[in-house]
Design a protein around this nucleic acid. Structure first.
Lengths: 301, 301
DNA sequence: TAGGACGATAAGTCCTACCTATCGGGATCG
DNA sequence: CGATCCCGATAGGTAGGACTTATCGTCCTA
């Protein structure tokens, strides 16, 4: 197996293209470095360096391996930095925005883990609708937003974390046949209960059901999914419930959940940040942790 | 500095939560493993493992470090796999789709590098417009698409590679004042030359200029940027030229390029694949290589 | 043709990762 | 309550590997 020491030495050679100077930088003698490079070549089974007369060059594969090695060394450095003082990686202030149809379901699973893993991280939370979050992100009032993708904004980068399917929630034993897969045409517009205008979840549901804004619907718009699910339980109508909310919102025995026929409606939940932000590493680490936290609770349930 | 050997041992401890069995798996004695774990804790300056009576648990930070370590070990394995036979990473068939306004400018820089770095990779290319590419991607006829983001399709994952700004291309010395930053209202719709309908570049340009499809425009629609630039050079009109095309398409001295005032119009170029695809690793590696290839030629010029 | 730059080779030293043997403490059971 | 056992820590010794200095071989240059 290759060693990190070899990667460090090779990386120095790749930069200097000169054994002597690379050895110097590494604080060892030139033969020691030569030996490690040859050892590495033997392990990998191919030449990394072309020893030309008077000059040194990397082979084609050597270039690629140097690139990968550099990334690995960076990750190792991050790991030790994290261990030593949690510093430089996810420490200090992080202003996070979350949309209302995600916050109550994800944060309880994640926040304890954040406290434990990154005790020096001061997480400042903001919960509001997508367009407001995006505005505040662009203006620098937020560092990072957890929301449904895509953003549709240039200048923002994003990373998808997971897919969240929608289920049809209805009053148990009512009109919907719960033994079959649901289809969008079963949904009567006047019985569809949704969040008020401006929530992305509302738009996603309407798009799937093929309902234009203008069409006749009940004029109802709720501020929270909890309210909507109360209404569903009492037979006021039906709604599309994201899978991540099921555990919290669909405990009432009067609520029936039906999976949709393919193509199943869903939303992509992901992280969004300014492309220009220098904290990519932090966001990656934060995203990894979110995925881990969500994955755990899912497989555990 | 930490070693990969320590990471491997620690990872085994994290899985077994038992020093003896972990040592067994690593093929060493239990004291040897204990020693390396303690060495690692000394280097990182914190306890990774809670030695409780009768049972072993990871500390909070230990859990996070195990996660990071696992990723590093995976990257190292990928590196050696790549070196040994280029296998499992980017080998075999890869069907890549590219949009017409990107292909001629990116592929020449990238393909030689691909050949050299991944000689066992059979890259099969397809060039057509975005919606067609997305269809073929969803149906499995393509593995990967290089295009402008976002896709707007669920079930697809993407990764932004870089931002490609638009410049105003006009005939030198003609109506446009090249000493100042351009603004969209300077563009007369009837003089704007664009690709034919269906090209994403056309839609992006129209959106920036605030021109609705219905508005009066010249009826012209070209099949290639080359043609458009020929027309610009000869004074038939102006166009929005992506920065990546400048080197190839704007050599004619009769063409003047003007940067736009902020917010500069741009497009995001990225890779897109099916969320369900098992080849994430390949795509990551391919994306890294694209970024490296583009970065090189940019900084070199 | 002599000199110099540079990487490879050779021989010796020291560190470190490993082994076996043993200890110590907390749980478990008669 | 004491015997036992499970399991990680400690101790002491060994072998291999990473480093050193010294020297060689080769190619370029003057």
């Amino acid at each position: 197996m290759i060693t990190l020491r070899q990667l460090r030495y090779f990386e120095a050679v790749a930069r200097h293209l000169h054994f002597g100077r690379a050895a110097d930088e590494c604080g060892i003698s030139q033969p020691a470095l030569s030996q490690q490079i040859r050892e590495m070549e033997a392990i990998l089974g191919l030449p990394l360096v072309e020893r030309g007369a008077r000059r040194v060059a990397l082979t084609a594969k050597g270039t690629e391996i140097a690139r990968r090695g550099l990334k690995i060394l960076g990750d190792v450095r991050d790991l030790t930095d994290f261990a030593r003082h949690g510093a430089s990686v996810l420490s200090g202030m992080l202003k996070l925005g979350v949309i209302p149809s995600v916050a109550p379901y994800v944060l309880p699973r994640v926040l304890p883990r954040v406290q434990q893993t990154y005790p020096t991280l001061e997480l400042q939370l903001r919960e509001t609708r997508t367009d407001q979050l995006v505005d505040e992100l662009l203006q620098g009032q937020l560092d990072l937003v957890l929301m449904a993708l895509p953003t549709g904004e240039p200048g923002l980068d994003s990373r998808k974390l997971f897919e969240d399917r929608f289920l049809l929630a209805s009053r148990a034993g009512a009109a919907v046949d719960e033994t079959r897969l649901a289809t969008p045409d079963q949904i009567e517009p006047e019985r569809l209960l949704l969040l008020e205008d401006g929530h992305c979840l509302r738009d996603q549901a309407l798009r799937y059901c093929g309902i234009a804004r203008t069409e006749r619907m009940n004029g109802f718009g709720a501020a929270s999914l909890s309210t909507i699910m109360q209404m569903v339980a009492n037979g006021y109508g039906v709604t599309l419930l994201p899978e991540m909310c099921v555990e919290v919102e669909a405990r009432d025995a009067r609520i029936a959940l039906t999976r949709f026929a393919a193509p199943e409606p869903s939303r992509e939940i992901g992280l969004v940040w300014r492309s220009s932000s220098p904290r990519r590493h932090d966001f990656d680490a934060f995203g990894d942790m979110l995925v881990a936290a969500i994955g755990e609770t899912r497989s555990a349930s």
